[in-house]
Design a protein around this nucleic acid. Sequence first.
DNA 1: TTTTGAGTTGTTCGA
DNA 2: GTCGAACAACTCAAA
Length: 472
Amino acid sequence: MGPSLVWFRQDLRLSDNPALLAAVERDEPIIPVYIWSPEEEGGWAPGGASQWWLNESLQALSEDLGEFDARLTLRSGSALSVLRRLIAETGADAVFWNRRYEPAARRRDAEIKRSLLEDGIEARSSNGSLLWEPWTIETKSGGPYKVFTPFYNACLAAGLSETPAKEPEELPLPDSWPRSEALASFDLEPVPDWAEGLRDAWEPGEAGARRILNRFSRSGVGRYAKERDLPARRGTARLSAHLHFGEISPREAWAAARKGGDVWKRQLVWREFGYHLLYHFEHTTDAPLRQEFERFPWKDAPAELQAWQKGETGYPIVDAGMRELWRTGWMHNRVRMIVASFLVKDLMVPWQEGARWFWDTLVDADLANNTLGWQWTAGCGADAAPYFRVFNPMSQGQRFDPNGKYVRRWVPELEGLSNKHIHEPWNASEKVLQRAGVELGKDYPFPIVDHGEARKAALEAYGQLRGDTRPR
DNA sequence: TTTTGAGTTGTTCGA
DNA sequence: GTCGAACAACTCAAA
């Protein structure tokens, strides 16, 4: 028998990695491989922030493998041809990987498996990324779930079969290593370098993921239910990007969740639900699940979209969120809902525009979860927010950032305003504004839309849609 | 087949 | 200031 290729993808870790463990069990020399093939992602190649993270994470994985005296072989190109070339170069006769579930990846992987088996190569895939794979959970009548709570209950009823596995004690090594391309040749690092804020905020890689999870499970998970909605606090785990890149397994996250209530557990299952939905409804990355929304009167409003992207809408909580995103590659979940509602309902810009912006700017950009989130907000997806649920940026700000700490952190030009005015500066008197050193329209924009009117217009449009769909 | 109860995250209005 | 109802029906999931 020849060596085993372990093909890393969105499972950039050594602990609880089923593909790696399967290869270790086979007990032939292991050659770890990563293939950069953005053109095989069906139009959803990693965005800028994700590429930055990936670069760091590959570096970390490479170093972690170094501790085992193993090397990570980097290649770019079509995955199948790269694998075939590596097989020819190394004499490998087995390839192991953990499954992906996005439409394009699935189709490609199926084709790869078929081709390799045809070549007489052992090709084995495992589940390293989900607690429940999409096809294992179904309703009593055999279909996919479209409502979260019954899905959640079905997951709990199905139970988890395996507990997390430790990293291997040692890796069987080959006599020689195949040539690796330089990580830098993937061009993942931003030029010019805009990643300073990302570097300050994150530690990509398995060690960083474990540090975060340990801290959260020690002191965060107990407070999670109470603090998770307050963006000024570190009330959430901030594990999303680590989970997306597979630097820590969902089983380990689940084990930590057991110590907390079910609030965080439910969040982990939301992640599963996103994959469940994307698996069963592939078109939802680009088109609404509910077809009638194809006819929604979305606006082509490039100036408003740009103001939203830059955090210059004149609504402090919205702008704070968008600037946090731009600076750190991440946004607090509560604020994601607020900014998304604002784009889709106040500005009536298509949710796909928001999804694309998040895709490019989030370090945790995840096709399944991004799609679910945006369709939920727009009201066109499975188990979506009711159409009349329009977030009010002032009251959301008052409720979840009552002392304005979050706004002041990201919109420092409003720093001098009192808590009374911090979420609605246009309601402050000239005198108050002057004392705070704020000139509206100069230091900070006037609101680009009137929320009250925008809300009415949105409700009108949604009502129209319903009228249209009524049977004649 | 039919029935029944339920459905992440909100806001506004009027009593 | 507080509280409950309305917002709109529809679809889902299970019995």
